[in-house]
Design a protein around this nucleic acid. Structure first.
Length: 809
RNA sequence: GCGGAUGUGGUGGAAUGGUAGACACGCUAGUUUUAGGAACUAGUGCCGCAAGGCGUGGAGGUUCAAGUCCUCUCAUCCGCACCA
């Protein structure tokens, strides 16, 4: 008898599948399409571990299942290969990032291949290939021409370690998302994409997406839309007006002071002579604080009085203007009306500096505390007695009459800063002309190719290494033909990944980013599988680009990813996070070499628990997964060597049909762990039946083949090998998913549970077609139950057909 | 503080309001001339000799019946955070 040896069969079938091109998606097929996509990986220097591989295993099971269900499946793979790690590696080892990335990509591809994933490799893409980034640049120009890409000088996050600016989304707790260094603010002229123009649509369209509530709420939170009003306060003895944003215009009568962020110019200009020194000292002190210090919550409030006063437009009251760093320059107007009775921060500030606190909304909160709650207006002139929700609207309407206020919507999200002062990225296709300003590189001159250079070290002066390459920089203006300079910054890598899912529909097109007809055929992505770490970066950016493309008429859909599936993280066996630095990663390649094989790893990835929940890797569990496949192997070998027989086995029919039903239903809702459990149960049953009966060859052949088909999405190699051994021609992976027939699932007898007063007291066998009376009588006849019913009056009898009888006494 | 999620045996986890613990790991006992990180059989929620009782983070409630529905509460994890 042949032994199950994954090392023999897995490479063999991988080569065969590749030769037969069975996973290639067809642009011509008339079968319904299914686009299954896993986020394309960054080919890093480190090997993939079982956590990364879970992502691909889930996607592959979905792709394979759908293929067998008769869909024309697009399941592509590519490389998101621009970015800092490759460049830093290149600097350290003095090799070109190109060379480093090519090596990593080759290794990554081998690792994916040895797992037996069913990718259509004919569509492989690489974001660092000029044939690809030509079109990333093309999209940049589209945004530029639509006024959605612009340059602006402003204070921006700067990572001193990576020596580049970062987008807001890429700063996590005041630290660089890549290297973890504390970031600084630097005044620089940078390129932005105007994602804020799409803020409303990005919030509203979340509604219809089949995404987890967690990711949706992260995006909503990040966009941070809040409805409110802008209200103008005139500064006394000056032409200045301070405009504030508030979500609670109803509390306007309770505004007893104002606060301006230290960064605002107006903070200095309105300051009186007496307060000048104090204000300057405070502003300096505030700017010296790191952002991490400033962001610490529960910090003691600090601030300084400007000496100036403003007039509350609603009642003419004079309110002092203060400067304090609890007001952020970057949100709203950078100035607030402070209502200490109804806002915690204002309350703390008023307490500290002894400013007046006036309650204007009456509710059941204590007098000496602040309250956000709604209530009835008091101390608010004509609005007294009105409900606060109502007053909120009325006050804004009344202010609008004198143009002292208006309704506005505010967002926390800022525009997406996309320029990077680094080498390894797609060059921004802009030429700076002294006469014509920023000019787009004409389309026929794309791509602007990233030149090979000597030193990848960033200068740190705010310019990329490309600035040191005169042949690259010096050019002529496409408009006037005069001497001009190329933009030397490169694009954020997230620009490349904002449209890659479209390129897979038409990966080799050199006339356009994609053929609209092909995009129409394949997109949107039906199942997008990836980690939650992309919640407010990639997933937001890609949605934004998609909407821009839709507006431009390039595509016919507004959301790129209909269904998003966030797989749960795989933790180390001790429950801690797996990381290269901790040295606790588990690599599939190592497990495969140990003899478990890719199929065992794949089974384990899915059997560990629900696919969307975190789970600790289990070393012992590997044995169980492997044993399961061993037992299937052995059963098929024993069958093949048996003489066969003619005895029929209704039991065999029943268990296999039942399993087909269960596995199909589970796969439909991605319940992989229970699908595999059902296969294990089926296998246990088959062994039991085998031990009792002789083989009935026709039925056994069918039973084993069906079981292998159900196994195929999870363990494709062993399924394919045994499929062949059973005499089948053609790949199991292009075979038709087995169907079940309800007629085999019908039971002759049923076990009915019997409850007395809600407690389980026994069970009884009845015929499947027993009437209610027969079932109830059988239940009463049960010895135990009879004991509980003796001498009692049955007040109520409930019969749940085929399930239970419940007596109430 | 705001938002999202999760709480079930020794462990990972199963359960359309209807027999809680499927499946697997681990453990216990046994079988096999068993080199192995084997294979097979039986058992395994807790208390109890048993009958029985108790059990899904906690407290209430609805129901003949609650892990599942409702109210309150506790704990853990994740995201955001002086956002007006």
């Amino acid at each position: 008898m042949q032994r199950y040896n994954p090392k023999d069969i897995e490479p063999k079938w991988q080569a065969q599948w590749e030769a037969d091109k069975i996973y290639q998606a067809s642009d011509e097929s008339t079968k319904p399409k299914k686009y299954v996509l896993e986020y394309f990986p960054y080919p890093s220097g480190a090997a993939m571990h079982v956590g990364h591989v879970r992502n691909y295993t889930i996607g592959d099971a979905i792709a394979r299942y759908n293929r067998m269900k008769g869909f024309n499946v697009l399941h592509p793979m590519g490389w998101d290969a621009f970015g800092l790690p490759a460049e830093n590696y290149a600097i350290k080892n003095n090799v070109s990032p190109r060379v480093a990335i090519d090596e990593n990509t080759k290794r990554f591809k081998e690792q994916l291949m040895q797992m037996g994933f069913s990718y259509d490799w004919s569509r492989e893409i690489d974001s660092t290939d000029p044939k690809y980034y030509k079109w990333t640049q093309w999209f940049f120009l589209m945004l530029f021409n639509k006024g959605l890409a612009y340059q602006k000088e402003s204070l921006q996050w700067w990572c001193p370690h990576d020596k580049t600016v970062l987008a807001n989304e890429q700063v996590e707790n005041g630290r660089c998302w890549r290297c973890g260094h504390v970031v600084e603010k630097k005044l620089l002229k940078q390129w932005f994409f105007k994602i804020t123009d799409y803020a409303d649509r990005l919030v509203e369209d979340l509604e219809d997406l089949d995404w987890s509530e967690a990711i949706k709420s992260m995006q909503r939170n990040w966009i941070g839309r809040s409805k409110g009003a802008e209200i103008d306060f005139k500064v006394d003895g000056s032409n200045e007006t301070l405009t504030v944003f508030t979500t609670r215009p109803d509390t306007l009568f309770g505004a007893t002071f104002m606060v301006v962020a230290p960064e605002l110019e107006v903070a200095k200009s309105i300051t009186t002579a007496e307060q000048k020194d104090a204000v300057e000292a405070y502003v300096q002190e505030a700017q010296a604080k790191s952002d991490i210090e400033r962001q610490e919550t529960n910090r003691e409030k600090s601030g300084v009085f400007t000496g100036a006063y403003a007039t509350n437009p609603v009642n003419g009251a004079k309110v002092p203007i203060w400067i304090a760093d609890y007001v952020l320059a970057g949100y709203g107007t950078g100035a607030i009306m402070a209502v200490p009775a109804h806002n915690e921060r204002d309350f703390d500030f008023a307490k500290k500096f002894d400013l007046p606190i006036v309650r204007v909304v009456q509710n059941d909160a204590a007098d000496d505390e602040f309250t956000h709650a709604e209530g009835t207006m008091i101390n608010s002139g004509d609005y007294d007695g009105v409900a606060s929700q109502e007053a909120r609207e009325k006050i804004v309407i009344d202010l609008a009459k004198t143009e002292a206020g208006k309704e506005v919507v505010n967002y926390k999200m800022r525009d997406w800063l996309i320029s990077r002062q680094r080498y390894w990225g797609a060059p921004i296709p802009i030429i700076h002309c002294p006469k014509d300003g920023a000019v787009a590189v004409p389309e026929d001159q794309l791509p602007v190719v990233l030149p090979e250079i000597e030193s990848y070290e960033p200068s740190g002066d705010g310019r990329s290494p490309l600035a040191n390459v005169p042949e690259f920089v010096n050019t002529i203006c496409p408009k006037c033909g005069g001497p001009a300079e190329r933009e030397t910054d490169t694009m954020d890598g997230f620009a490349c990944s904002s449209w890659y899912f479209l390129r897979f529909a038409d990966p080799h097109n050199d006339q356009a980013p994609f053929d609209p007809e092909k995009a129409k055929k394949w997109l949107p992505v039906d199942d997008y599988i990836g980690g939650a770490e992309h919640a407010v970066m990639h997933l937001l950016y890609a949605r934004f680009w998609t909407k821009v493309m839709y507006d431009e008429g390039l595509i016919n859909f507004q959301e790129p990813f209909k269904t998003l599936r966030n797989q749960g993280m795989i933790l180390a066996p001790d429950g801690s996070k797996m990381s290269k630095s901790k040295g606790n990663t588990i690599e599939p390649g190592v497990l495969i070499d140990q003899g478990y094989g890719a199929d065992t790893v794949r089974i384990m990835e899915l059997f560990l628990g629900p696919w969307n929940q975190a789970a600790a890797w289990s070393v012992e569990g590997m044995g169980g997964a492997n044993r399961f496949l061993q037992r299937i192997w052995t059963l098929v070998q024993e069958f093949s060597e048996s003489d066969g027989g003619t005895a029929e086995s209704p039991e065999l029919q029943k268990i296999v049909h039942k399993t087909i039903k269960k596995v199909s239903a589970d796969l439909h809702v991605l319940s992989f762990n229970t699908a595999i459990a059902a296969l294990m149960e089926c296998l246990n049953e088959l062994y039991r039946i085998k031990a009792e009966d002789k083989y009935a060859s026709v039925e056994w052949q069918w039973a084993l083949e069906s079981m292998l088909q159900l196994l195929a999405p999870f363990a494709p190699h062993i399924a394919e090998e045994l499929w062949e051994q059973l005499g089948q021609e053609g790949s199991i992976h292009t075979s038709e998913w087995p169907a079940y027939d309800e007629k085999y699932l019908v039971e002759d007898t049923l076990t009915i549970a019997i409850q007395v007063n809600g407690k389980l007291r026994g069970e009884v066998q009845i015929a499947a077609d027993a009437t209610e009376d027969e079932a109830v009588n059988a239940a009463k006849a049960n010895d135990k139950v009879a004991g509980y019913l003796k001498g009692q009056t049955i007040r109520k009898t409930i019969y749940v057909a085929g399930k239970l009888v419940s007596f109430v006494v």
